[in-house]
């Protein structure tokens, strides 16, 4: 655990990091970015918390069970969206033209609209959930593993 200054700054900064990561995930079909990138941004915030606080402190709020449920539900949403279009082909974008995320933008460069993209925003969300939970679990497990050895020695 680091000094109180570092802990306070990390506590304030994690909010902005999470908001920026969620922005990158949600706007994945309009601006550069997407599920993988936004998830990695949020996990970098988790790593910052891990540096500022000890891994045992962080384990109280980030449970391994919750993380594994989050990752599995992300995978299930992704596969479910893939199977939803199986009437045509696997991974068919069936939401284009419907009221949900179904607007079609004008051809060519444009500012973009959040309600476009069909299943792409939902898949971005699923992949983002997967990446956040998976990488957080890996980082936390590695930190707990090495931290436990230090205590024993």
């Amino acid at each position: 655990m680091l000094t109180k200054i570092v802990r306070t700054v990390a506590n304030q900064l994690i909010l902005f990091i999470v908001i920026f990561g969620l922005y990158v995930i949600v706007h994945g079909h309009i601006t550069p970015g997407g599920g993988f990138q936004g998830g990695a941004v949020i996990v970098s915030g988790v790593v910052m918390l891990l540096v500022a606080f000890s891994s045992k402190e962080l384990k109280k709020s980030l449970r391994e069970r919750v993380l594994s449920i989050m990752e599995s539900s992300g995978a299930v949403i992704f596969i479910g969206l893939a199977f939803a279009g199986i009437g045509t082909v696997f991974f068919y974008n069936l939401l284009v033209g419907t009221p949900i995320f179904g607007r079609v933008p004008a051809i060519g460069p444009g500012p973009g609209d959040i309600w476009t993209g069909g299943v792409i925003p939902l898949m971005n969300f699923a992949v983002g959930l997967k990446v956040i939970a998976g990488l957080s679990a890996v980082v936390l497990a590695l930190a707990l593993f090495s931290g436990g050895e230090e205590v024993e020695e």
Binding site: G28, H29, T31, N93, F101, G102, V104, I107, G112, T116
Partner: peptide
């Protein structure tokens, strides 16, 4: 853009 409705 026409087929998937995604600007990206």
């Amino acid at each position: 853009q026409e087929e998937t409705g995604s600007n990206n």
